[in-house]
Amino acid sequence: MVKVKFFAVLKGLVGKEEISLEIKEGTSLNQLIEQLKADLPPLVDIMQKGGILISVNQEVLEKDAIIQDGDEIAFLPPFAGG
């Protein structure tokens, strides 16, 4: 089971702040994104638009990274602090 979090504008677009889902061993972030797109259709447009970073356990990783049971994944829209 992994936890997936959505922040800021994504929270509203996806309609959820956090979800939990089962993953198969060896799942990559890319595969997780595809799995999520099926359940959360707004993600298709969001990911196509670009500019979204994805973190695993609070570290931004490339989309070919392999995730593990218990990981916390977050979809991060462009930052705008300061």
Partner: peptide, 9 residues
């Protein structure tokens, strides 16, 4: 801070 910190406005 503006470049790498996950804060949104």
């Amino acid at each position: 801070l503006k470049r790498i910190t996950p804060i949104w406005k």
